[in-house]
Design a protein around this nucleic acid. Structure first.
Lengths: 192, 192, 192, 192
DNA sequence: TATGAATGAGACTTCATTCAT
DNA sequence: CATGAATGAAGTCTCATTCAT
């Protein structure tokens, strides 16, 4: 009652889980309020609308993660080190909060329309890093977008498999395997 | 009756596009009827419900594609040939109807719950093929699910990039590049 | 079911009465639907929203009445004849549908904001007619708006008294009395 | 306590303006609190409810004004003098606080239901005064309610025009003109 | 007295679905 | 088979009011 920000976090947490479980549109305000143990109207003291709640949940984490990745890659010199660190970070992020990851994944299609091109995302960071690596002759030249797509695909799809429990190990345990695979994708089959 | 089945296809086609454009839940029966130039009630002559329409659109194509892949892989002996053919097929499928591909992608989250484990999907086919390849010592042993995830990721994410116009080439033109990348992922960096 | 326009009229009629009885904001969609014997959703097949219903009810009749008055005044030459006819018409309008009149009165404050200046209203017609009468030297010069206000006030307030049952006679029976009073207001007390 | 009554007046003042600007139902407690710079709950320290606030605003001023008029008319002997004084007073009232006048006007429809017949209003005072004038043979006999309606209409509608800025002069400047017009209405066109 | 987070009834509106024509 | 007006359950959101601080 005194601490409104606690309520806001409670709503965010509850909504995130329900969104992932049932889908955003399929989750009703009543669902969220009920699960959070608050009144329906209370939600609107903290979020303007359901859409805005979904967007805030998405943008905050999506953009924050990109910033985190960018800060991280700057600490390293080579593409190989950058990539290693980024994938390690990605795995840690997933393991820390798989539900959040799932949300980012499922919300993408709807929310990405609101992401303006100047916003930095994990994709743009990855492309930038790969482009630099090519410029440094670390890896052979190829279309940057294609390279980024393939690298991203390797990591993302494994995470998706994990989210669907098709893979059982912690993602962090696979970090090196993923890095190696990505590196092979980028280096075009030369000796790693 | 000929006219009737034409109407059904018209509905399917229109719905598919609207579903991709706006999302399934966000697309109303009125939207579909309006865009298809038919009355709202008419849709129910051809589909039991909106859910059933969405499901039919998904299952038909999702499962058909898996069957197609399976039939194809049987024509080849080695994993490498199987993979090459499957990826070629995947790219052709995408290029033939990118909207349909987008639909399968977006419908996944909601519809996959209705896919029973015994149904054969592209994922199961891929896993089966990879498992055989490992048994045949074509590629080194590793967790099949992990291998499948990585291979799938490479191909799928490139398709997604293409769907978002982040990549401009036709997917079929990238077929060999993708196959090579997947192969490197699987073979652990040995000489291809 | 076949004739949608009948339903629309039913809604209009029901809403009008409820709006007058309870006020616009105080009347709910459920009230209207219940009183009209239709489902709540049905209202939205005929009106975009409650606001639009209130506006259509207002504008149609308000503007129509002005047009009617204008057509009428054109049939006469002198201000006196025009005024006589207009007041007679006003009284007939009131007697024909007192509820409609009450609605126009009560909706004014909220709806008049949406009336653009170029729209012709009873007020503008009255001002025009009085201005012409002054130009023709039928009545002494004075500020047109002031003259119009006073004439309108005489007629309108009597109608309001009637609407509140403070006056019991039919308005049409008072038509001549009102005309005479208005004329005295305009002519500044000279011999009529 | 001094501070408290100041807060109450602040609320009254703020609410009055918002009520006129947006309508009573359309004005929320939050609107009022926000505009007055107080918390939402504070309003309830001074008024039982929003309805009671609206009613107090109305009844106080509406009834006070009637009392004022009544006291005033008693100071004069003849209808003509009474009327002159009352109209002068009305104009002064309007010019002093046009927003308050607008509020009384717009609140009428909703609040008048709560006005019991024994309460003295401006209308009853006017009727009483006119009835006396007729009894004194100052003006010809006619239905008192009708006479009152017409006189009231002249004055009220001019005020309304002024409130809508269709008339620009101060109402007090029109006081004599209005009195003369009303007199002509009452005297049936005889010599003023 | 003042605050403002919380409440919850209820308002408006949407939309999948039905059915008489 | 086609139509489209009608339905009514359910969803989102508002807002007067309460109450712990």
């Amino acid at each position: 009652m005194r601490d409104g920000s606690r309520t806001k976090e409670l709503i965010a947490h509850t909504a995130l889980h329900l969104f992932v479980e049932k889908g955003i549109t399929e989750t009703t305000i009543r669902d969220i309020a009920g699960a959070a143990g608050i009144a329906e109207g209370t939600l609107y003291r903290h979020y303007e609308s359901k859409d805005q709640l979904a967007w805030e949940l998405f943008s905050t984490n999506y953009l924050d993660f990109a910033r985190e990745l960018d800060r991280l890659q700057e600490e390293y010199e080579t593409l190989k080190d950058k990539l290693t660190a980024m994938i390690r970070q990605f795995c840690a992020f997933f393991d820390r909060d798989p539900v959040l990851f799932s949300y980012l994944l499922l919300a993408q299609h709807a929310q990405l329309k609101k992401v303006t091109p100047e916003m930095e995302t994990a994709v743009t960071v990855l492309q930038k890093v790969i482009a630099q690596g090519m410029a440094r002759r670390e890896v052979p030249e190829m279309e940057v977008e294609l390279a980024a797509a393939m690298v991203l695909g390797v990591v993302l799809e494994v995470a998706i498999f994990k989210a669907y429990s098709r893979i059982t190990q912690e993602l962090s345990q696979l970090s090196e395997t993923l890095t190696a695979a990505c590196w092979r994708v980028l280096t075009g089959g030369g000796i790693s």
